[in-house]
Design a protein around this nucleic acid. Structure first.
Lengths: 163, 163
DNA sequence: ACTTGAATATTTAAGCTTGAAATAATCCAT
DNA sequence: ATGGATTATTTCAAGCTTAAATATTCAAGT
């Protein structure tokens, strides 16, 4: 998980090597926080809901779009590859949590939607998930959380804030 | 990748549902930043160094410990499972980048070290990697980066800051 | 010595992930 | 209409990841 920063030196263009080190340190912390939270979420989804994180993510994407999403919309939304989503959706379909349908005139595409069962399952998981995040990030005040969110805004996605 | 926040309500214990929403939003942003940076790093490691991110991470861990690490130290350091590290180290050994050795009296354990070739390969990758992070987090000032790092400090690991 | 329990590492099965190649359907400029 | 580009998705191989099961070794305590 990435090496820790070393010494610092001034550079010709006005930027400082220490700036780069500060960002590298931030990156390491971001990564650790992500891994910790993801680890907890994975474990609790497994034990409490017999679900996985990727399945939860796909269902979260679909929950926001009752009319359904294309496979490519899901993969863009989640920032994962197309081929990846195919397998996850396959398994969700096998479990009766989501459905594929060819409603439009384009036979290349299919709309993916949550089934009634899928919506119910996700609603329960989402409530628990939010409380886990609140617990794990509890050391950060709401105000700080908002400030940090704002500073990470450049990573905002096309889709975020649509709803 | 996690659902976006919805409405807000007051609660009995003084905490606000909006606080939970603020943390959830932060979590989504952290996750997106991580995925974006990891995606870029993965792609550039592949094209520029014919390496993978997990291999890079293991080498980064070892680079800091010239005397070697146990398998379990590596997995704890990287916050990944034990079994995971076995496979990655196997492949690094096959490529001549790291070596296993039984230097101590305990035959359960083996010390993993970077080979000379491995150290050289990592040094080149690490320099590039730091510049990628600097580029991708460039929208965040060094001062902000330090502040954010401090607020994520609770996720600090046992090992961080040792060196 | 022997047993018990803890520590370390590997193996296994299932699933996730990527990037590239293959497939298939649609669109569009002739 | 038709050939070629574009778009959407799946398939595939390689590798990553976890949790659980297994095996081995070590450390005590008897």
């Amino acid at each position: 998980m990435v090496s820790a920063p070393l010494p610092a030196v001034a550079r010709a263009d006005g930027s400082k090597q220490s700036d780069s080190k500060a960002r590298l340190r931030l990156w390491i912390r971001l990564l650790r926080a992500s891994r910790l939270i993801e680890g907890v979420a994975r474990e609790r989804l497994k034990t409490q809901f017999d679900a996985t994180l990727p399945r939860f993510d796909v269902m979260a994407a679909l929950f926001r779009k009752p009319d359904g999403m294309l496979m490519s919309e899901i993969s863009r939304f989640l920032m994962v590859s197309n081929g990846n989503v195919t397998g996850i959706v396959d398994r969700l379909v096998a479990d009766g949590l989501v459905a594929r349908s060819q409603r439009n005139g384009d036979r290349r595409t299919s709309f993916i939607t949550l089934t009634r069962k899928g919506r119910a399952a996700f609603a329960a998981m989402a409530a628990a998930h939010e409380s886990w995040v609140d617990e794990l990030l509890g050391g950060i005040s709401a105000r700080d959380a908002e400030q940090m969110s704002a500073k990470l805004k450049s990573f905002r996605s096309d889709w975020e804030g649509e709803a």
